[in-house]
Design a protein around this nucleic acid. Structure first.
Length: 400
RNA sequence: GUGGUCGUAGCAUAAUGGUUAAUGCGCCAGAUUGUGAAUCUGGUUUAUGUGAGUUCAAAUCUCAUCGGCCACCCCA
């Protein structure tokens, strides 16, 4: 590549055929959520940097793309040595949504069920399935502290995944309060508890011995012993009492929910149930969420209970299978530009009949041209010659 | 952010440190065939990501940088 013409690191150009797939997938998810009475909203890509870095986002706060102050303000900041950035790109959709709710509370329903679909940005080191700009699809319920909220989000997410052919998705679930109690019990003092959670989160990777060893390094032998005692007596086949009502409410869907006592999630803002969506074919989670009852109050002064769950579109699109679209796309082939006027008239006629119709000049290598049309989503073609006056004269054929 | 690995034309590949960096696909032109097609000839061609260094000589070795991938970290 003589010229470097690539998008910025970890960001991608979406090609036409991929864009079609993405939009269909998003439409499927959106439709399912709208059908449950959720309402779609949109928030800005940028938020005040102070809001994004107020200790709510855990490690993600370190990954914020910061936006410099502009003009005189920037010059002044450089001169005085004060902060150079005042805005940042959102790293998730939850923080902006709570800000949105606090701002517009007066005109929003008391129990607000929101859909939000949009890109978020994190300055991470990219890998496959891990980008610096990616699309999230969130549903949140603000203003309902009951388990109806959790149950509805889980049910709606599972239904959305089923519509995409991902029946095998399971949701791991845990509860922040249970987690904190356990950590206190093994003797980790309050300020260190987050660090302990991060270690416990590695249970499936390091195993019990690895985790107890790491806890021992961080907090001493007594914590290590206590954690060994705790982890070896862990019964993950039964949900803790605090989660049981939710599981009962899920009915038959409960089979898709699994208790995971070591599930942590990095966000600092969670206060209750936390979720992570997994699929056997995905190497990392395809979604996640939880209850965050204190964040709205942080902005507005009036507490509002809230819970949300997010689907990661980039990861889901790798796995999803969408139903085939009906064949109603037609390429109108002409041999010569002399037929343009005639072709335009017949094209309008075909569009009126419900076809998606594109005029194509016939190329020398017909086979290659057909293959290209197939790739672009055309299923049919028809040859227009000088004798064709109406669409009904056309011989419409399938492209194999 | 840490460590590893890779980067050759529009795409896919080849080339012990040693000729003018090769081939296929695609694309373009012409010829032939004669129209849900091929074949032939030629071209596409300013291709070794970028910048330094070592060397008589670098795609190949070294360093830096940018990008991809992988493992951490964390996450959707």
């Amino acid at each position: 590549m003589a010229n470097q013409v690539n998008p910025p690191r970890g960001m991608r150009d979406i090609l036409p055929e991929d864009k079609v797939l993405r939009e269909r997938l998003i439409a499927s998810v959106r439709q399912g959520y709208l059908a449950r009475g959720f309402q779609e909203v949109e928030t800005p890509a940028l938020e005040d940097l102070s809001r994004l870095t107020s200790g709510q986002g855990g490690d993600n706060e370190k990954l914020v793309f910061q936006v410099l102050k502009r003009g005189d303000e920037l010059d002044a900041a450089i001169k005085s040595g004060s902060a150079l950035a005042d805005l940042g790109l959102r790293f998730d959709l939850t923080v902006p949504l709570t800000r949105y709710f606090a701002t517009n509370q007066a005109v929003l329903p008391r129990v607000f069920k929101a859909i939000q679909i949009g890109p978020v940005w994190r300055a991470e080191r990219p890998q496959k399935g891990r980008y610096r700009q990616f699309l999230q699809c969130d549903i949140d319920i603000i203003g309902d502290g009951s388990i109806l909220a959790e149950a509805e989000l889980l049910s709606a997410s599972l239904a959305a995944l089923t519509n995409l052919g991902l029946d095998d998705a399971v949701i791991r679930i845990n509860h922040r309060e249970v987690l904190i109690q356990s950590i206190s019990k093994i003797g980790v003092p309050e300020p260190e508890q987050l660090s302990a959670m991060v270690t416990i989160d590695k249970l499936d990777k390091l195993g019990m011995n690895g985790v107890t060893a790491e806890l021992g390094e961080k907090f001493g032998q007594s914590v290590a012993d206590a954690s060994f005692e705790w982890l070896s007596n862990l019964d993950q086949s039964r949900f803790p009492a605090i989660l049981q009502p939710l599981i009962d409410a899920m009915g038959p869907l409960a089979s898709k929910i699994r208790y995971d006592a070591s599930l942590v999630r990095g966000m600092g803002y969670y206060t209750g149930a936390i979720f992570e969506i997994e699929h056997p074919l995905a190497s990392s989670s395809i979604g996640g969420g939880g209850r965050y009852d204190s964040m709205v109050g942080k902005w507005s002064g009036t507490d509002a209970p809230a819970v949300g769950i997010s689907l990661g579109i980039e990861r889901i699109i790798e796995l999803a299978s969408l139903p085939k679209q009906q064949a109603s796309s037609l390429a109108l082939m002409i041999d010569s530009e002399d037929l343009t006027g005639q072709a335009l008239i017949i094209q309008s006629e075909l569009i009126a009949q419900g076809f998606r119709c594109r005029i194509e000049l016939r190329q020398k290598n017909f086979k290659v041209q057909m293959a290209s049309l197939t790739k672009q989503g055309f299923e049919k073609f028809a040859q227009l010659d000088s004798g064709t006056v109406r669409a009904s004269d056309l011989d419409i054929r399938m492209i194999d």
